[in-house]
Amino acid sequence: SKWSPSQVVDWMKGLDDCLQQYIKNFEREKISGDQLLRITHQELEDLGVSRIGHQELILEAVD
Rank of each mutant, 00 (worst) to 15 (best):
P5A: 13
Q35L: 07
V9Y: 03
I39C: 06
R51E: 15
G53R: 15
L36T: 01
S32M: 06
L15D: 03
E45D: 10
N25A: 14
Y22V: 02
V49C: 07
E60Q: 14
V9L: 09
R51F: 14
D34V: 10
H54T: 01
Q7L: 03
E27M: 09
Q7F: 03
N25C: 12
L15M: 08
S4C: 09
V9M: 10
V62I: 13
E60M: 09
L47A: 03
L57I: 08
V62D: 02
Q35K: 13
W11N: 04
Q20E: 07
K13D: 05
L59Q: 04
D63L: 10
F26A: 02
Q20F: 09
Q7V: 04
L44V: 02
E45L: 13
T40Q: 06
K13R: 14
W3D: 06
C18N: 11
H41D: 09
C18V: 11
G33F: 09
S6I: 10
I39R: 03
Q21W: 00
D10E: 15
L37Q: 10
Q20D: 08
I52R: 15
L15P: 03
Q42P: 08
V62C: 06
M12I: 10
L57F: 05
H41V: 13
Q21H: 08
S4D: 14
Q42M: 07
I58V: 07
Q20V: 08
Q55A: 08
F26W: 02
S32V: 06
G48E: 03
Q55F: 00
E56K: 15
K13V: 07
L59T: 04
S4I: 05
H41L: 08
E45M: 12
R51Q: 15
S6T: 15
E60A: 13
L15T: 06
E29N: 10
H41Y: 12
I52A: 14
H54N: 04
F26Y: 01
G48A: 01
N25P: 08
Q21P: 15
L15S: 05
I52M: 12
W11L: 01
R28S: 13
I58E: 05
E43V: 08
Q20G: 10
K13C: 07
V62E: 04
E29Q: 14
V8D: 02
L19F: 05
L36E: 02
M12S: 02
L47C: 05
L19D: 04
V8F: 01
T40W: 00
S1Y: 12
D17R: 09
G33I: 07
C18L: 01
G48M: 01
Y22S: 03
E43F: 06
D17E: 14
D63H: 14
Q7I: 03
P5S: 14
K2Q: 10
Q42K: 14
F26C: 01
L19A: 04
S4Y: 05
C18D: 14
G14H: 06
S50Y: 13
E29W: 09
R38M: 08
D34I: 09
S1R: 08
D10Y: 09
I31P: 03
G14P: 00
D16S: 06
L15K: 06
C18F: 02
N25Q: 11
R28D: 13
R38K: 14
E56A: 10
E43Q: 15
G14E: 09
Q42T: 11
S1P: 04
S1I: 15
L37N: 10
R51K: 15
I31W: 03
K2T: 15
S4F: 04
R38T: 12
D63Y: 12
I31M: 07
L36Y: 00
S32Q: 09
K2D: 13
M12P: 00
E27S: 08
V49R: 00
K13Y: 08
P5K: 05
K2P: 10
S50T: 15
I23V: 14
K13T: 08
C18P: 08
